[in-house]
Every structure is written in C-alpha cells, then in structure tokens.
Design a protein around this nucleic acid. Structure first.
Length: 790
DNA sequence: ACTGATTGGGTCTAGACAGCATGTC
DNA sequence: CTAGACCCAATCAGT
C-alpha cells in the first residue's frame, strides 16, 4: 500500500512521512490500516521488533487527532518515553503536539491536557488515573507498546489494570496494542475486542543459527565457516568474522560480571580492526566516560571502550548508558556485551547478535533456568539495521552437537510462550484493589469483582473462584491495616472522609451494583497511600515503624525502615557479610524501628540484615562518603548507588506524608533524613546545600572554611570564598544564589581561610565509627578511612 | 630458584517503575 | 532436584 492512499490523517502528515523516505507501507502496516487502524478500530499488532510497529501507532494516533481526539502512548521504560517523544515531536510541523510525562520527567497534568499526543510509562498513567487527571476522559485513542509485558510478574498487572481502567473510563476509545510475536496474540485481541495482525514479517532478513565447532549453521540450511583460533572463545571468532565485513555485534550474557569480562576480552579482537581516526574517536569517548564518574566500573568501561568494545548493564550511570548506545549506533563502537537490559530497551541494532548465555540464575528455580523463548527472540530481533545492513544474523552458541540440536529445537524452531496475566498474585492485587477503591472505580465488593472481570486475567482464568478468594484475602489485609473500611450494613453513603475523586463518579456509578452488597471505601490513609503510589505493604511497614518509635528516630533507623519495604529493591547479602552486619545490628539495634525478627528465623533475619546493609549504605552516603568508596565497599555500580538513593528519596518523601497523616511527631526527623539522602550530606550541611549550585562537596569545603550557613555566604570574605570554590564564575553564581548584594568577584584575590584550626563540629560524633571517609578538601588522610570495620 | 601455566575450590548471579518540587563538581 | 563463569591461590612443569 502506498502512503498516498492513506486517508484521515492530518494534512501534511503524508508529506512528512514521504520526507522521511517512506513511500510504501510495510505489509503489517498495510494490514493494520485495512483492519481499521486509521478509523478508530481496536487493534492488536503482534509483529517482530523493528518491523514498523511505531508507524502503526503513529497512523492510529494521528488519525484520532485529526478526528478531533487525543491520544496516549504507553511505554514500558522511561528511556523509551524520551525516544518516542523525539520521534513524535516531528509532527509539530503539521500542528500535532506531543508531551511526555514520566516519574522524573517534569510536567504537570494540566499542561498535558493541551497536547494531542501524550507519552507516558504505564506506572505514570496508573498514577494519573489514581490522582484523577481530568484529561484522561478526553482520550480517544490509547496505544500500548510492548503489551506482552503484561506477562511480567512485577509490572505486568499495572499495565493490565490501567488498560482496563482507561477502557472503563472511555468505553468508545480506540485501543491499539503493540506486541512482540507471542503465542497467544489472539487471546489478547479477544480481551480487547480488537482485530488482530499477527505476522513474522520483517523488513530486513533475519537469519538465525547456532555456532558449534568451526561452523555457523543457519536455519535455512546454509553454513558459514567461522573458525575459532587458538584458545579464543566462540564469540570472539564470531565478532572478528563480522567485523571484517564491517558489521557490529551485540553479545548477550547472563550477568554483569560476564558482560564486563566479555567486553574486556572482545576489546582484544576489535582493537585490531580500527582505523586511526576511530581510535581517536574512541579515546575521546573513553575520556567522557571517565569524566562521568571515577569509579572502578567507569575505568573498566573506559578501558574497554578505547579498544572499540563496551559493556552495558544496569550498573552503569544513565550518562554512560547513553554514551555507549549512541556510539554503537554511530558505529564508533564495534561490539557491546550486554545483560538483557539492552534487549528490552532502546533501539540498538547490530549486524550480528550473539546470544552467548541462554541460561540465567533464577533463585526460584533453584539454579540456572533457561531463558524464555520470547526473551531470546527479543534479543535476536536486535539483529540487522534496516537500510544499513544487508541482513541480520542471530547466533546461539553450542559446545556440543547435542546442545546445538537442543538450541534449534528450543529457540529457533520454537514459538514464543503465551502471555499470561499475573494479576491474581497477592502483591499485585494488594496495590490495585486499593487504588481501584480509592479512585472510585468500585465502591462495593461486587463492583470490584465486576471491574476485575474486565481484565485479561479474568478472560484467561480457568479457575473461576480464584480471583474472588485472593480478592477477599486482600480486602482483609487492607482493612486490618486501616486502608479501607467495609460496611455491610446501610446503603447511606458514609464516605470515609474527604469524599474525593469526583472525576470518576460516572465510572463508579457504572461499576456499582446492588445495595445489599458490602460497601467499600478508602480511609484517608488509604487515599494517601494510593496517591503516593506505594505498595500498601510498604506503607504499613512505614506506619508501624513510625508509630513504634518512642524517641526521635535516627537517620539509620529510618533508612533501614524504608529499605525493608517491598518497594526497595534489596541489596544482596554476600557470604561473610551476615556476620559483619550481624555485628552492626547488635551495635545499633536500639536505633532500628519496629521489632527485629528473631535470629532463629533465619530467612526473615537475613532480610532484616540486608535491609540494614542498604540502610547503612544510605547512611554512609548521607555522611559524605564519596562515590568511589561506596561502590567499592558495597560492590555496586555507580548506577546502582544512584538508584538506591533515588528510591530512598522517594520512599522517605512518602514516609513524610504518611507521618503527617498519622499525626506522628517525627515528621521533621523524616524530612531531615530525606534531605540528607537527597543531597548526600550530614545534618550540619543541610542549610548550605539549599543554596543553588552548592552540592555536597562544595558545601563541605565552605563549612570547613567557617562558612556554615547561607547567611555566612552573604558576609564572608570573598577571597576565602574564591579559594574554597576555585572558579570565579561559580563563586559569583553561588554568592548570587545566596542572596548576596554584590556577588562580583572582580579583582578579588584568593585568600586562605582564616581558621585552619578547628575541624568544625564532629559529624555524627555519637557514633565513633561514623565520621571516617568523608570527602575533605585535602583528602590527604584517605587511608585512615575505616573501611569494613563495622 | 623463578616464572608461567594449570588446576581446584569458593563464590556469586538481570532488571528499574513511582511522589514532589527544582537544579551537580 | 538442576549451572557455569570467574577469581584467586596453590601447585606443577619447564627453563
């Protein structure tokens, strides 16, 4: 189908696509149009990666906008949100506006009301629903990207419930679900009352094969000689082979450490194939990576990058990740060794994809478990860059003939698994039942069950009573924790409190059924929990912890408290560390909130200790231990540290709201602990870091020079300030931010601080082991840092 | 006696969403 | 119930 034949799009859209070099629609796209994508029909498109799914979405959304509507594009990852945003922003040329909203992407709800297309993560959409964003009821089209993620144990239910809610809110809204090729696309289509486009078609040829011995055997029967030289690994031979043809490769492995080791080794291959020019580019890139942070991970990455090889996993900082991805797309980097992050993330195609490890450690399986077919297919789908490569190759590695056959059977000839709803799991329901009640989607038990009937779970379930049983368990839990109230008596609507959420009264009325049924209402606390987007179990833990505290909780106490909630991804306790942290536990037991489990309940005690470890990490961060020492001491990447700190910040923010809600007297303590994590400083610096451009390092230097609060900045000797802050420009900006009248540094001479004597007040002097490892100006006595002596 | 290779035991294992109010060295 | 790569240290072979 030629794009000229398309109708119903905004004027200028066709020209725009032609400008992008698009003349013909790909077959799946044409099929989607025939199925009514541009006429507001529901559609499920199960097609391989990179075969033009986005175009299907774009056509649907643009035609919806042209009809005067508004579209929402739901993505699974924040990184994808910004990628799509850039793509859709091009439409502004013909007057279609786009807005993005994710957790860290700033934008208020009302602002989005004016946009034609909104891009958001599924969690963000869920949150918008909970907070009753008015514009949601204006939607006429919603696109759900990577809808097969409904199968994901953790995040799938959110997507599922959110789609169900949006549909209940706007019964006539068009739903377009984009999925990888899965086993049961038809079931998803049934659930969504949608037409189905299900195809294996790809715009660029994909050959799948297995490498064994010196040969690469493809699914079409062809064979390619790829000899393994000397003691090198199979993947090294494969990388070199394709590099000589000018192609890049992507190697998927199953652990971070393997990714790093593989990158190092493959650097030995790629460095022999570089031009002088590439070498300089890579050296620059390596420099940028080193600048980003000076941790071990960065050094290793930079070293590998100099040879044209990189690793990619969640321990990288987001800057590093972007640098690596961009350089790979530009073909500066020749090979990336990655954990599965990359398969799900942004678009980084390579000529040859090598799936080296097809088993992964899975504690629930008690050992190594094979990857899902779907996952492997997603990885293999990264092979081949349309327009750049003549074809793509996806290769699995076998060390024996038997294994080679097994791989063909298991992955190459096999169909992906069906998508199964994970909604009936208790943790998922806990959250969503509360949210459904709090936002007025259901006001009775029957109404709730009726709503749940509209989910994929219900349409798949063969066990009719199950959902009801779990729902009752969950209601019981929510009630006993004071998040909801049940009233089986009268029908007079005794609203729990503030009445709330008028936005969805129509939906609520719709869902309501029968007066004699048990009435459900969220308590004020329940509303807060739902709005804060907390797992009710996290909220309960925090509430109990705060309520149990007889005296002002310490930072460590609060950090450990939030670290043991299910919303905090746990830090793994290494062998030997249980002893170390057990000791720390006895030392500081009094600070911890709530009752510690007995040491004899091994599992729960271990959890308690690993939360203590995470808490201790946060405390170290909040006593100005520098990044390198932390990543070293806890053996984590710079990205992990950032992640922990972010999560803690979020949870402590939530804890502050909860504290206020339950009238806890420790609100201030929580706020202070949160501020300390946010800036990574001890209490004494909290005032200083509130000044713009002053972070933990500068604040500490100022403090040591006798400038202890913002007011001091206004009166301090400029020479001293200049010495401490080094740059003239920064000094001026900071003085200005502090509200000094004459911030100019013209003609000011650097001058050393007057008082070199006092080290200032001791930080955390109540804990003798605590004040080590703080970043000082001189850093001279770094060696005295008491590492590992907890 | 020193060095480099080999072997064996012990250890450890992917990912990343959200509130709220503004801005690192 | 199930694995396998890596690291480090100890041992061994070769010069």
């Amino acid at each position: 189908m030629n794009i000229e034949e398309l109708s119903g799009l905004p004027p200028g859209a066709v020209d725009h696509f032609r400008g992008e070099g698009i003349e013909e629609l790909y077959p799946p796209q044409a099929e989607a149009v025939e199925a009514g994508a541009t006429e507001g029909e529901n559609l499920v498109a199960a097609v391989p990666t990179a075969s033009g799914k986005t175009m299907i979405a774009a056509l649907s959304m643009l035609s919806a906008v042209q009809r005067g509507g508004k579209a929402l594009y739901i993505v699974p990852l924040r990184a994808l949100a910004s990628e799509k945003k850039e793509e859709f922003e091009e439409y502004e040329r013909f007057g279609v506006t786009t807005g993005v909203t994710t957790g860290n992407y700033e934008s208020t709800s009302d602002w989005l009301a004016t946009k034609d297309i909104v891009v958001a993560t599924s969690e963000k959409v869920d949150s918008l629903v909970r907070n009753g964003a008015d514009w949601l009821s204006d939607l006429t089209c919603v696109v759900s990207d990577e809808v097969h993620l409904i199968d994901d144990r953790n995040r799938g239910p959110t997507l599922e419930v959110t789609l169900a809610k949006l549909r209940q809110l706007n019964p006539r809204m068009q739903v377009v679900a984009l999925s990888a090729t899965v086993g049961n696309a038809d079931e998803i289509a049934d659930w969504l009352d949608a037409a189905l486009v299900d195809t294996d078609w790809r715009p660029i040829d994909l050959q799948m094969g297995v490498h064994y011995g010196n040969a690469l055997n493809f699914d079409d029967g062809s064979t390619r000689e790829v000899p393994v030289e000397g003691s090198e690994k199979q993947e090294a031979a494969l990388v070199r082979d394709i590099l000589r043809e000018g192609g890049s490769s992507l190697v998927f492995v199953n652990s971070r450490r393997n990714a790093e080791a593989a990158a190092r080794r493959l650097g030995g291959v790629s460095k022999n194939e570089l031009t002088a020019e590439e070498r300089t580019e890579l050296a620059d890139l390596a420099e940028e990576i080193r600048d980003d942070s000076d941790t071990e991970t960065s050094k290793d990455l930079a070293d590998a990058v100099e040879h044209g090889s990189a690793f990619h996993h969640a321990g990288l900082s987001s800057t590093q990740r972007t640098l690596v991805e961009d350089a790979f797309r530009d073909r500066t980097l020749k090979v990336i060794s990655a954990t599965p992050t990359l398969a799900a993330g942004v678009n980084t195609p390579a000529r040859r994809v090598i799936v080296r490890d097809w088993r992964r450690f899975d504690p629930s399986a008690g050992g190594m478990a094979p990857l899902d077919v779907l996952e492997v297919h997603q990885m293999m789908g990264r092979a081949g860059r349309p327009g750049l490569d003549p074809y793509g190759e996806a290769v699995l590695l076998a060390t024996s003939h038997d294994e080679s056959e097994e791989l063909f059977d298991r992955y190459i000839w096999a169909d992906p698994e069906p998508v199964r709803s994970k909604l009936a799991a208790e943790p998922a329901l806990r959250t969503h039942v509360l949210a459904t009640i709090a936002s007025g989607f259901a006001r009775t038990r029957d109404g709730l069950l009726e709503f749940l009937e509209a989910t994929l779970y219900a349409s798949q379930s063969s066990e009719p009573g199950r959902l009801e049983t779990v729902t009752d368990t969950v209601l019981q839990y929510l009630e006993s924790n004071d998040f909801i109230e049940r009233d089986s008596g009268g029908s007079d609507s005794a609203e729990a409190d503030d009445g709330a959420d008028g936005a969805f009264t129509s939906a609520a009325t719709l869902a309501e059924s029968g007066d004699r049924d048990e009435e459900l209402a969220a308590t004020s606390l329940g509303h807060t929990v739902s709005r804060l987007y907390l797992d009710p179990m996290s909220a309960a833990e925090i509430v109990h912890g705060l309520a149990d505290a007889d005296e002002r909780p310490t930072a460590l106490g609060l950090y450990q408290l939030v670290s043991r909630t299910p919303d905090m991804y746990e830090l793994y306790l290494r062998s030997g560390e249980d002893e170390q942290f057990g000791e720390l536990f006895y030392e500081r037991e009094a600070e911890l909130l709530g009752d510690a489990p007995s040491e004899f309940e091994e599992e729960r005690f271990e959890d308690w200790l690993s939360a203590l470890k995470t808490g201790k990490l946060l405390e170290d961060w909040a006593t100005e231990t520098d990044e390198e020492q932390l990543t070293d001491r806890y053996e984590i990447g710079p990205g992990d540290l950032r992640g922990k700190v972010d999560t803690a910040e979020w949870l402590l923010g939530a804890a502050e709201s909860l504290a206020a809600e339950i009238d806890s007297e420790w609100t201030v303590a929580v706020r202070e602990a949160r501020a300390r994590v946010e800036h990574g400083v001890s209490e004494d610096l909290l005032e200083l870091v509130s000044v713009g451009e002053v972070g933990r390092k500068r604040a500490r230097r100022l403090y040591d020079a006798g400038i202890e609060e913002p007011a001091d900045l206004r009166t301090a000797d400029k020479g001293v300030v200049l010495t401490v802050l080094k740059g003239e420009k920064t000094a001026e900006t900071i003085l200005e931010n502090a509200g000094r009248e004459d911030p100019s540094m013209d003609g000011v001479e650097p001058k050393s601080a007057g008082r070199t004597d006092g080290d200032g007040p001791a930080i955390g002097s109540d804990d003798a082991d605590e004040d080590a490892a703080r970043t000082e100006t001189g850093d001279a006595d770094d060696s005295q840092s008491s590492l590992g002596d907890f």
